[in-house]
Nucleic acid binder design. Sequence first.
DNA 1: CCGCATCCTCATGGATACTG
DNA 2: CAGTATCCATGAGGATGCGG
Lengths: 227, 227
Amino acid sequence: MDKVKRMPNRSYGQFCGLARALDTVGDRWNLLIVRELLPGPQRYNELKASLSGIATNLLAARLRDLEANRIVERRLADAGVSYALTPWGAGLREPIEALINWSAPLMITGRGDDSFQPRWLATALPALLRDVTADPTVELGIQVGDFLMTLRIDQTGPSVVIQPEQHPETILMAPPEAVLGLAAGALTTDQALTIGEMQGDREVLLTVFPSRRSNAAAALASALNSI
Amino acid sequence: MDKVKRMPNRSYGQFCGLARALDTVGDRWNLLIVRELLPGPQRYNELKASLSGIATNLLAARLRDLEANRIVERRLADAGVSYALTPWGAGLREPIEALINWSAPLMITGRGDDSFQPRWLATALPALLRDVTADPTVELGIQVGDFLMTLRIDQTGPSVVIQPEQHPETILMAPPEAVLGLAAGALTTDQALTIGEMQGDREVLLTVFPSRRSNAAAALASALNSI
DNA sequence: CCGCATCCTCATGGATACTG
DNA sequence: CAGTATCCATGAGGATGCGG
């Protein structure tokens, strides 16, 4: 009846950086929680809502583990608790961005029945557009849901700023499948624009400032084709 | 008795690159199998031996999944099957290297009771030394176990070549904890050299070519300190 | 031998109800 | 709002068997 002693925690037991990284953040939901916290701190119920489907006991357990491993820290916000990444935890941005870039072929099938949060674009777009240079300087405001950001492409490369001051004349409102499909290279810029213009009943509206429109389309096309 | 229909595969169901990447390679052992195949194809039993602790049925299942997802492909070798990465599967090198870099703080505790395979250095060392430039050109042969590689640091950055032609006068034979501890910044170069020289009974021998020794130590120190 | 498949046990994940 | 508690389904670990 007394079998061999069981390992208390299921570690790979390998002296390898990858194995130890996965020992720490390899459990289910862990990296998705980190992704959720990359744009900024979140409350427990915000995390629970964004990670649709996570069991509440699992979310609590994962947050406890991540806190014990110094990846996440609890902060006392007004009227509640707020979860934020430590500097080391925020260092997971690079691996996460690398996984997002690698996964581009998995995104061209479109959204399907999957859930979507505009917040995810704040991590995905900078990753997908990294190391891309465009000839003319382009600045687009992107609004998906109630999430505002500015996509800027210039000689120094592309950058995405979250929650910028609004530029109403250059706001691109698009459904997530159009934006991410475009970002993944699934659609040409023209197709994406067409989709945006065709589905007006879904509150999809494209209003790039006219004098910049061709520049924006060309820059986006060249940027996205090189992904 | 008829409950809600269960999902056949446990997908996150999120339209997000990270979530879809983890749907594909997030299951336990998957990324470690990819790491094992990064330096080159491996046989089933080689994988089973390196990944000490994996259940044989799990390895078979994971290889089937990875093959179905076009990450791994089976090749008919002489007298058996050989598993190799597809080009897309090899693209996981970047996320894996990013995780290895992120995990450096987890490596400074040393090897402990963990297992070790020299093959892992072939992925870890280039990752840890990326984006580092050294002033003088340095070339070191590193032998751990029966695994030979050349670490070269010059103006174009560091590079590691596996199984090179041997340079006996610059071979550094060191225990894995010394090499990886050094790579993780746990030890200064001098300490690592001392360890190497002190533990001769463990077949630990450091014989950097004398005229290059100071250059090598300085280059390694500056390279490793900037990690 | 190599490359798995089967069987069994236990740890982990998932859904829901409940509580300070 | 921010979690615990509980129960059950599923997946991992380990031993063994088995055909080529």
